[in-house]
Structures are given as C-alpha cells and as structure tokens.
Amino acid sequence: MKDRTSSVSPTMTSPSVPVMAADESATSHAEPHSVASFKHTRASRWMHWINFPLLTIMVWSGLRIYRADVQDPFGVGIAGWHWFNLFPEWINESLGLRRKLAKGMAFHFTFGWFFTLNGIAYAIYLARSGEWRHIVPDRRDLADVAAVVLHDLKLRKATPPQGRYNAAQKVAYSGVLFLGFTVVISGLAILSPTQLSPLTRLLGGYEFARTIHFSSTIGFLLFFVTHLLQVTRAGWSNFASMVTGYELKKDVK
C-alpha cells in the first residue's frame, strides 16, 4: 500500500487546497461519522522518533560529562553564597550517573554525530518540502502566544486562529529546533576549540560555549516536560498521529 502522505507536495505559491482521498466514500454520508485526517508526514515522524532516543542518549551521556567536574557551574548563588545546585548530587545518584566520565564521553562523541545528522536532515527536509510553513511562526503568531497559553491554562475562552499548529506550538517547535542548532554549534566549539577557534571565540570563549551548551540542554529538558504534558492533555488520537500520520476525528458531520 502506498503511503499517501508522500504524494502530497504542498505548493509554495498558491494557497494550498485540501487534498481529499479519491476513494473516500464515507464523506458522502450526512450523519456524524469518524474520519482520520492527515497530520504528520512520514519523514517528520521518522525523524521525530529517531531524535527521541538520540537526544536521550546525548542528555544522559552529557550529564555524565557534566558531573565529572566537582563544581556545578549551574549552581545558583550570589557573591560566593551558594544557594543550590541545578544538578544536585541526589539527582545524579538516582539516575545512576556516578562519575562515569569515560563512558559518557564515548557515547556523547559517537552519538553526537548521529544527532547532528538527523538534525541536518530534518532542517533540509523542512526547507525543501515546505513543511516549515507549519512550524515557523509569523509575526501575528508571536503576538498570539500569550493568548494560547492563557487558553490552555483555562484563563481565556477564545482560541486564537491556528493552522496545523497553534501559535505557541509554532514558537515551541521552532524554538527547540533553534536549541538543536545552538547545542550542536556550542558542542563543536567545546569539542574542537583549536580547530574551530573562530567559532569558540564567537561564542564568547571556551567557558561561555560550555554555558551555552548546558543552557541549551536545560532548554531541551524544559521543552520535553512541556511537550509530554501537552501531548498527554491532547489525548491518544493526537499521540497516535505521530505514529500513523493521521489523526482520528470522531463524529464529523
């Protein structure tokens, strides 16, 4: 059976017209019925799910590297008065991250390449397929983000207009792509600060490149928590669409 999604190529110039499946007999019924509508392309689904374990390995191995130095650069304090560590010992202990630096590096420096390749492939795919249109926010989206968040928190009734994704999703998805970019660039600046010394200098030096690298990771973790929460809220049919490509819609007229 041929995958329909791959034959859908959104045109860049004319407004896209919904492409209906030719063999769709159910749509002629007037009574409420269930259909499934297209949501995620096959390429997006594969790259999304390939990215998940890769990013998990990168964070897991990265924390092992981070942990190798006794001092926690993300500890928060003012003028030598230490308040708390961002990754305190008990977190590392409970994750089984007990100073296994070599293992962390071996995984990080091997899987980093796969993570980067998957990211580059996705960026090229977004640009070439036109899928970027669904993810990149326009200026009115930027203004709508707060309204979407208020709506999700049930503090506001009306939903701002949206395409495939709402304004907050677009900003979050673009943002996490940008994090992917900063984490790879800063990672390279740390990995090869002599060979790539102009890049390291551009990022404010070795130490600041490290800060960017870790901050990006924290950004990924924040995204991940929000993403899980929102996917849970959105329900099974939405989750399944990331696997099947189609979202089941019940009782459509």
Binding site: P15, P18, V35, F38, G163, V243
Partner: peptide, 25 residues
Amino acid sequence: RLAAEAAEGPTISTAEYSKRSRRSF
C-alpha cells in the same frame, strides 16, 4: 492561509486508518 494549512492533506476512512494504525504501530 491558516485555514488552508490546517486542512492540508488527505482525509481517510476509519477502515483505512485502522489498517495504517496497525502497520505503523
């Protein structure tokens, strides 16, 4: 434009969805 973007792509019957779903999962 947003409405067109949201509606982009085909719609399939529940029967076909079940088939796809089994295969994809």
